[in-house]
Design a binder for these strands. Structure first.
Lengths: 192, 192
DNA sequence: CGCGTGATGTGACTGAGTCACATCACCTAG
DNA sequence: CTAGGTGATGTGACTCAGTCACATCACGCG
């Protein structure tokens, strides 16, 4: 499979991150990124659909993992338990060694609207996929949308705390704690 | 204020919508849109930040209306009542005469990922603004995020039904009905 | 050793988005 | 009635994202 210097995509991601941090996102050219990785612009676009996507590589597996967790959850699980299963799968996708990378990437994304837009889109794609998986498990559509939203919201809340503070607990713990907070707040807010 | 032929922005929006429907979004050039509106490409970009934005003009007032409704709600209102106030303000922003336009615009957006991404971003911007307005009214941050999500979700659910079926009820009614469904589902899902 | 395959390079091209500068309609002060 | 002033538009040139057809090169396999 691999020939030439292997790891082209990884080199492109690293080069992009360094240049974005140093020069800013808009001031960095896809040709510059490719050159720093020892490649050309055309090859950059062979690995990423567009310039933004270089910071979101690997998120593709999130949807698969989350939906697989819902599909494979225990028979008879309550809707919120299915959501928790999706949440655990999402949290398990990021090894502790990559926490520092997450921090750096998050800082770049937060600084540029164009990238925040893509981040929000990715988030909504995950939520939609989880909601579909929930309805496939028999959860009614409205409840599925809400449970998926809770799970994804817990995931991003936990992820942000994990990335923001290297001394914070593990990602799965932080995500579970966030889900507990959300469930409590939701119950209190919707009580009549 | 106005000189030349007035209504340049409206002409651009109408031209863009017609061309997008006829040729597709990607096959349509900003120069084509401008020409059809009797203008030039440069003027197009004086009215819209980018090509996508031409289909989202006017959404800027949604945030102002929704946050103003929260700011001005009755003293002592419960969090969900504040959310309902934001929802009513959002629903009131679309006169019945524009239902057909909403249907057409929605069809174009739904057919192109690039536009769906922008739509999701707009939605999240509204939700964030409402959440901020809620925290400013003393609602705790986690609950504010959830209530804002419920309100915005009710708004989009109602809006989609309103745009999808010209015989469906009024937008405010559809949005309120959606909020009722969501509250019931949320209460049932988060019950222990 | 020759051949197929897959990743990369090359060069040219389209179109989004920006910018400096010129122009023209309208309004207002004198 | 005229001279600026203002704000919206036009013009032409430019950068860069993203695409494409075609050439090239490394590697594995028969």
């Amino acid at each position: 499979m691999g020939r030439w210097e292997p790891g082209a995509m990884e080199r492109l991601i690293a080069a992009a991150l360094e240049l974005f941090e140093r020069q800013g996102y808009e001031a960095t050219t896809t040709a510059q990124i490719a050159e720093r990785a020892g490649l050309t612009k055309t090859t950059f676009f062979r690995h990423f659909r567009d310039k933004r996507e270089v910071l979101f590589a690997g998120q593709g597996v999130l949807i698969e993992r989350a939906t697989a967790a819902v599909d494979g959850a225990a028979h008879g699980a309550a809707p919120l338990d299915l959501g928790a299963a999706a949440l655990d799968a999402l949290a398990a996708a990021h090894p502790e060694e990559r926490r520092a990378d997450a921090t750096r990437i998050g800082a770049v994304i937060a600084a540029h609207d164009e990238l925040r837009e893509r981040a929000v889109f990715k988030r909504s794609a995950i939520a939609e996929a989880v909601a579909r998986a929930l309805t496939a498990r028999g959860v009614d559509a409205v409840a599925a949308g809400l449970v998926a939203e809770l799970a994804v919201r817990a995931y991003y809340t936990g992820f942000d705390r994990w990335a923001a503070d290297s001394r914070a607990g593990s990602l799965p713990e932080l995500c579970r704690a966030a889900l507990d907070e959300l469930r409590a707040a939701a119950a209190s807010v919707t009580a009549r």
